[in-house]
């Protein structure tokens, strides 16, 4: 999963581009819209529950529509911002250490990424809250560290898995190494890099809930509110929303992988 090589979206896409059966566009749209429809249904269920269930005062205070909406948005911001930052940092680094002259650095960089990811996420978040300020900023930095490895590693693997003879023939025709990177290597690595982004973002949605401990906001704060007050319905509602968010992020990035994958692959 972390390399995205066994990704279910990759399979279905190959079939679509190769055979192009009539009506495949509709089939594709049905697949693209099916998951969001299901998730929307779950959200409606949550809204109905919050509106009509027999909740006590504490639960009512913790579960307001405004509060849930803000928590969800902050959660998305945490994940979105950190993932974007990782893309900006890890993809260039991955490209850099994949250049022939930097091959010896690759294991070092991947090792550092491994260390960052093997530290428990709770530890990373608290550590960065102490190092930086507690709150949103610290949590973003922690999430960046945590999501760094999947994207870095997939960038490196994505570039390494390219048929070396494709690069050799490009160089042999007189394309400069920069041009080969831009026109050949990066487009061919896009599917694997995007798979890494997807993995990182989905892990990010889960990890971001811990950000509540350092006052970062997000759905995690609602869950912890429920835990502190021993209100199971609150915990369940916030957990369901987190799961919906994770599935939605996974789905949207899956669609993006399909759309951005170069034709002919």
């Amino acid at each position: 999963m972390s390399l995205g090589l066994e990704d279910p979206y990759a399979r279905t896409d190959t079939v679509v581009t190769e055979q192009r059966p009539p009506g495949s566009r509709t089939a594709q749209w049905r697949r693209y819209l099916g998951v969001p429809a299901l998730l929307a249904l779950v959200c409606v269920g949550v809204v109905v529950f919050v509106a009509f269930a027999d909740l006590d005062d504490v639960e009512r205070r913790l579960l307001t529509f405004d509060g849930l909406r803000t928590a969800t948005l902050v959660h998305l911001e945490l994940v979105g911002l950190s993932t974007l930052l990782v893309i900006v940092l890890a993809v260039p680094l991955g490209i850099l250490v994949s250049r022939p002259w930097a091959r010896r650095l690759t294991p070092v960089v991947v090792g550092l990424g491994n260390i960052a990811q093997s530290v428990p996420s709770l530890g990373v978040i608290v550590l960065f809250a102490i190092l930086f300020a507690p709150g949103f900023g610290g949590a973003v930095v922690a999430l960046v560290v945590y999501a760094f490895l999947p994207i870095l590693r997939n960038t490196i693997v994505g570039l390494q898995q390219i048929d070396p003879f494709v690069v050799e023939s490009a160089r042999g025709m007189g394309m400069s190494s920069n041009r080969v990177l831009r026109e050949i290597e990066l487009p061919l690595a896009v599917p694997v890099i995007l798979a890494g982004v997807r993995t990182a973002a989905v892990i990010g949605v889960g990890t971001a809930t811990i950000g509540a401990l350092t006052n970062a906001g997000g759905l995690g704060s609602v869950v912890y509110g429920g835990i502190v007050q021993s209100r199971t319905p609150v915990i369940v509602v916030a957990s369901i929303l987190t799961a919906v968010l994770a599935l939605l992020v996974d789905h949207v990035l899956g669609v993006a992988e399909n759309v951005l994958r170069p034709r002919g692959l």
Partner: peptide, 16 residues
């Protein structure tokens, strides 16, 4: 290299 045609066994066409 732009003055020299280059053909290899694996062909190395750009798949995309």
């Amino acid at each position: 290299r732009r003055r020299i045609g280059y053909v290899i066994q694996q062909v190395g066409l750009f798949p995309h």
